[in-house]
Simulated scan of single mutants.
Amino acid sequence: MKRSEVPSLDDIRAFEAVARLGSVKAASKELALTHGAVSRRITKLSQEIGVLLSEPDGRGIRITRDGEILSKAARNALDELSEAVATIKQDKNNTPIVLSCERSVAMRWLIPRLSEFQDRHPDVELHLSVGGGTLDFRRDKITLAIRRLDFPLSPDWKVEMLMQEKIGPVMKPGMRVHFDNHNYIGLSSRTRPDAWKEWSSQQKSTPKPREIRSLDHHFLMVEAAANGLGVALCPYVLAIDDLEKGRLVAPLGFQEDGSQYGLIYPRNLSLTNHIHLVRNWLAEISAGV
């Protein structure tokens, strides 16, 4: 028999349910169909095959010998289909989630909090990748990405805001006197070379650095400040833990610079339960920044 000649799956499901449960009433309840709809599907199936599949038996129904053969084959086929669908869903939900994050944000903020997520959701396989700027989700096999939204965003992406960028000078506690006396080295990152110039133009009454030195990455800049090498003009998200521990102080606080960090993923991404857990957790820990 050609595949095109195989009867409707809906009709087969209706007949298999009647044969398995022993009545049209029980089958109609399981399938959420009316009694008449189930009966019509069985009649249609019998006509297509050209054999009698069932016959009245008092107030009930009796499956014929041919019907028994078909019902057994249908049950086996439907069981295999159910197992295949369950396997696909399970495999999809268990696919490792690759979260891409800017290097400094990953090192100074995300990684110190990842153990909390793993303890809470040990069954979620979350992998961390570092990177900045624009994205190619398919090429780089990335599921989700955390980025400072300072580059063009594709219309094919979904963007969920996580937190505002806040900037301010941070320093080792003992550096405060030098800061107040304008006798300090300003530390910056090569990725934002004009940060001190822009900040100074907006904070005209604040102490200006006597010299500015650049480091390759923000995480190096913050660590240099914590070790007394100067004052870092730093995003709050990168300094939050050291501020709480007292390694750094921020005498002028932090000001929003108009930019944000966002969670980015393809609009066509299938959002599994595990992905929802990651999204919700990121929103939760971002709320305190």
Score class of each variant (00 low, 15 high):
S259G: 04
A14Y: 11
K166T: 03
N227T: 10
T272L: 00
I285D: 03
R176H: 15
E30M: 03
G60Q: 11
R108T: 13
R13G: 00
D150Q: 09
I69V: 13
L135W: 14
M107G: 06
P169R: 13
R113I: 06
N94C: 06
R65Q: 13
L21P: 02
H178T: 09
A14C: 12
V18C: 07
Y236T: 06
D91W: 08
V289T: 07
G36C: 00
D79I: 09
W157M: 06
F254G: 07
E55R: 12
R213A: 05
Y261T: 11
I146L: 12
T43L: 02
T87S: 09
N268G: 05
T43R: 14
E48N: 04
A232Y: 13
K158P: 01
R192M: 05
P96F: 06
T206I: 01
E165Q: 14
N183Q: 09
G168M: 05
K208R: 15
R75P: 00
M161Y: 10
S214I: 00
E284N: 03
E68V: 10
G132Q: 10
R279T: 12
L78S: 08
T206D: 01
R41P: 06
G67C: 05
P169E: 04
K197L: 03
V249K: 09
V18A: 04
L263E: 08
A106W: 14
S201I: 02
L128H: 14
V51D: 07
L238K: 12
L144G: 08
S200F: 08
F15S: 12
C234Q: 15
W281H: 00
G67R: 06
V222A: 01
P7H: 05
N280I: 01
G186Q: 02
V105S: 08
E284L: 05
G50C: 09
V124W: 03
P251M: 02
A239T: 15
I142T: 12
L248N: 03
A250N: 10
D140S: 03
L45S: 10
R40K: 13
E48D: 07
I185V: 15
L263R: 13
